[in-house]
Structure formats: C-alpha cells, structure tokens
Design a protein around this nucleic acid. Structure first.
Length: 506
DNA sequence: TCTACCACTTT
DNA sequence: TAAAGTGGTAG
C-alpha cells in the first residue's frame, strides 16, 4: 500500500508485469493463483500466473483485476471499506477479466473475503497500528456471481463484476452479505470452479482455482478513518459525487446540512490532520527471487507456493442436471476492460471456498433461479464437496484446514463450539482453507509455475486437517428459503496465530 | 465504535 | 420518478 507497498504490509506486487492483457488499454495484473488440491502447482514467476495443472482443466486460466490502478491508489494509502448493518458495497468494485477458460465449459465464479491476519487495528496519529488480537472470524460467506454457472465463453465475453457484493458487520445478517469485523484486515479472493457435468460442485474433486490480488486487501471500518481514503472514495465513486466540489461549496453544503447559516469547518478538514502518506503497515516484500508477490499467503522461508488442483469427478446426478444454458443476464455494464485492469495471478489453492459444493454447477431449475438473483452467498458447509448433496444444504463449517497444506494449524479457534460433522466437501474446504489469515496458510511459490509435483503433503495435510478439524454445523437450508439465504454459503474463517502477514506497524 | 438519519447522487 | 448507493453528522 502506501509507500509503494501497501499500508497493510502485504507483499508488493511486481508492477511491471502487466501481462498480456488483451485489448485492454489499462494494465491488468494477474492474480496469484492457487490450484485445487489434486496436484500442486506453482505459480509462474511471471506476472501472469496461471493454473497450469493439466489434470483438472483449469490450467491456463488468467485473471486480471480491473481498475488495478485505482485499487493501487487506495492500497497505497491503506484501503478501508465501510461495513454497515444493512450492507455496503465495496469501492473500488471488484471486477475482473478472465481468460483461458474453455468456451464450452461451465464455471462458477465466486468470491470470499478472508482475514488478512489475526490482529485488530486502530487508526491513530494518521496511521494504522495493531491494537490487539482479532475477534473470532465470522462464518465465512461466499458470494457467487449471479451469472453462475456460465460457460467460459460467457465469462470471457466481458468484464466480470462483483460490485453488488455487500459487506456487513451484522453477524446475524439475513441477506447473505459477507460478514466482517470492523477494524480488521481482509483479503478478497476469487474462485473459479469448473461446473461442467463431469465436475460437479458437489463432487469430491471439483476443479477450481483461486485468485488473489493483494492490492484489494482492506481494513473494514464503520466510518472512514483515514481522510485520504475518504477523499479517494469521493473523487472516484459516482455516488459520492455530491461530496465533491470546492472547499467553499463544501462549507456551504455542510452548513446547510447542519441547518446553519454560517460556514462550518468540514469534518474532514478537522479530522484530516495531515495524513502521512506512509502507513505503518507494510507488506512483506515479495520473495527476493522476484516472482509474483506472495503477499497474501506469505511464503514460508524456503517453502514453495503450492497450487492444488481438485480432480474432476462426475457431478452427482441430482446435483447437475446437465448443461442447459442459463439465460444470461444482462451483460455487465461495468466499464470495459479497457478501462484498466490489474492483472493478478490466478491462485488456485487448495481448498475452494467452503460451500462451493452447494452451488449448482449445471443449469438446473435451481441454478436458473440463482442466476436471477444477484449474489449467491453460500453458507459454508462441510469441508468436503463430495459430501454435499444438492437436495438440502447442510453447512458445517470446519476449520480452514485445507488452506494450509504445509503447516499445522495453531490452536486458534474462532468458533469454539464446533460440532463435528462427518461431511465435508472439498469446496467447502476451500472456503475454509481460504479463511485463515492470508499468508499464514498458503505456501505459495511464485516461481514454480507449472504444476508438476505430486500433491505432496499438501493434500495430505488438507485431508488430515479436515478430518481433525472440528466442524461446525449449520442449519440445513432448503430451497424454499428466502433467496438471500440460498445464495449464501457460510464458511468459517479461521484466524491463526502467528506472524501476521501484514506486518502491523506499531 | 457504531447507528440512524440526512442531502445528494447515480441507476 | 423511484430506488439505491454515497459520506457526513449527531448522538
């Protein structure tokens, strides 16, 4: 973030590597990619990392962050996202361009937001600093893109926008919004899940890959802390246009708002004590080798990033009814790719977001229905996709085991009373895996680009963790439930103790 | 730290 | 025109 890095201490990303972003005028940056569990892959050392595994058909997928320049601006100051009881959209909006998808294969695109570390922050003296240990992570929720499932051709056609995703601090949120804790750091992640008939969502080996753009990390707040962020929001968010203008205008406007006939000093002015550009949070620099930033999941020394692939498996019949085309909704109206995008490496990591298995991969009446809804949130379920059944959604949230293939989990238990559940889907595992604070669980080797190695311990660890991790059971949701609920998959994010990925400035 | 409300804006 | 998305403010 700030200072060329990021305010939160995420590893820096190579800037120069705007890879081949097709036609886009703006640069796109590939995200870090982690592949599903089956076979570990290594991210390419280049800017564009792609899923290279040839086993699950996810190889070659590249994701580019749209408007990366804007994200970077925020990141340099220390991005803050407002969270409200009713739910607040993210700004900048999370939009991506995806390439490398098989035009005829169906995919489900979803997002989740995992803890960036296990700290609670405070903003004082114009800087963020750690003020304590993080609150227990909320049940992770997945936001399934409303167009899901859709063919690769569809996803590749235009910018994919997640702008309707909303953040809330209401732990009992009934709308399916992503639940976050204020003053905590988070990292959005994108998951691409293969949804063809041979790779059903509920299958054990659902192929998927995860992409993480470090510059999209942010601290959740109930009101802006850093005035620079406020100004950036006002300057760039069309809905905040009313707050733009000259100082005089602002004074008059505020006076009017306050029913005063005299100018008042804008709060921003008062509050805004020369914000220092630097932020206490500096992301660890990426590995010396210069590979892609390993930011999120900081690499352990000597460890290589691993990409996991889920093996394909036939979709359970009841889950996937085939490939009917689902009526695509209106094309994204979001700015065209040319507006600028940052690329990022696709990171397909181990566990897909929890609850993925619950998402209808194929067009089924149900999926169609989903399509019509905005966001599909999924309550995370079991860690294992294979166990999910499409009839009812039973969500048990295990600890994010799969996330960290290489290391054992520290004794951190965000959600103490987990009821063990025999079930677990890999997808859900993904969610769980994803849940842990970034950087701690995923060992990601930016340099290893092609998958070649055996799953190694990763998968083993994942499995063992899944087995050993306590599961939390959630009520079963039937399709008769209100729409919002259906779209939400909750996953338990798990905060681990350990070295914060984003070093806190102190 | 959080919430409800406000005026203003885009959609 | 209505609905929804903005940040600011008071409490």
């Amino acid at each position: 973030m700030a200072n060329g890095g990021d305010q939160f201490g995420l590893a820096e990303r190579p800037d120069s590597d705007c890879m081949d972003s097709p036609k886009e005028t703006k640069q796109e940056h590939p995200s870090y990619t982690l592949n599903s569990p089956v076979s570990p892959q290594t991210a390419s050392s280049q800017q564009v990392s792609a899923c290279t595994t040839d086993q699950n058909g996810m190889e070659g997928i590249k994701v580019f962050l749209h408007d990366r320049e804007l994200w970077t601006k925020f990141d340099e100051v220390g991005t803050e996202m407002i969270i409200t009881k009713a739910g607040r959209r993210m700004f900048p909006s999370y939009k991506v361009k995806v390439t490398g998808l098989n035009p005829k294969t169906k995919y489900i695109l979803l997002m989740d937001i995992v803890p960036g570390d296990d700290h609670r922050y405070k903003f004082a003296d114009n800087k963020w600093s750690v003020t304590g240990k993080a609150e227990p992570a909320m049940p992770g929720r997945l936001y399934v893109h409303p167009d899901s499932p859709a063919t690769g051709a569809h996803w590749s056609r235009q910018l994919i926008s997640f702008q309707k995703l909303k953040l809330t601090n209401n732990h009992l949120d009934p709308f399916g919004h992503i639940i976050l804790n204020s003053m905590h750091k988070y990292q959005p992640r994108l998951h691409i899940v293969k949804a063809d008939e041979n790779n059903g969502f509920g299958s054990k080996n659902t192929a998927f890959c995860t992409h993480v753009f470090p510059e999209t990390a942010f601290i959740a707040v109930t009101s802006y802390q850093n005035h620079k962020i406020t100004q950036l929001k006002i300057e760039n968010n069309p809905f905040a246009k009313g707050f733009r203008g000259s100082d005089d205008n602002e004074l008059h406007r505020m006076a009017k708002l306050q029913g005063k006939d005299y100018p008042v000093v804008p709060r921003s002015t008062v509050r805004q004590r020369a914000c220092s550009t630097g932020s206490p949070f500096t992301r660890p620099r990426r590995v010396e080798t210069g590979g892609p930033p390993n930011s999120l999941f900081h690499l352990q020394h000597g460890q290589q990033p691993q990409v996991y692939h889920c093996t394909k498996r036939k979709v359970e019949e009841n889950c996937s009814s085939g490939n009917h085309q689902h009526p695509y909704k209106k094309p994204f109206t979001s700015s065209s790719p040319s507006e600028g995008e940052s690329y990022y490496h696709p990171s397909s990591y181990p566990p897909p977001p929890p609850g993925l298995s619950d998402i209808p991969l194929t067009d089924s009446p149900y999926s169609s229905d989903m399509v019509q809804r905005q966001a599909c949130m999924f309550a995370s379920s079991e860690p294992r996709l294979d166990e999910l059944n499409c009839t009812s959604w039973s969500y048990t949230c295990p600890l994010p085991s799969a996330m960290t293939p290489m290391k054992p989990y520290p004794p951190y238990t965000p959600h103490p009373p987990y009821s063990s559940s025999p079930q677990g889907s890999r997808l859900s595992a993904i969610a769980h895996q994803n849940s842990p604070p970034l950087g701690e669980h995923i060992d990601y080797d930016p340099y290893q680009s092609q998958s070649s190695g055996p799953p190694s311990q990763s998968s083993q660890n994942i499995q063992s963790r899944q087995l050993s991790s306590p599961l939390r059971e959630y009520p079963r949701y039937t399709r008769n439930l209100s729409p919002p609920l259906y779209h939400t998959l909750e996953t338990h994010t798990h905060i681990r103790c350990g070295v914060p990925e984003w070093s806190a400035a102190s």
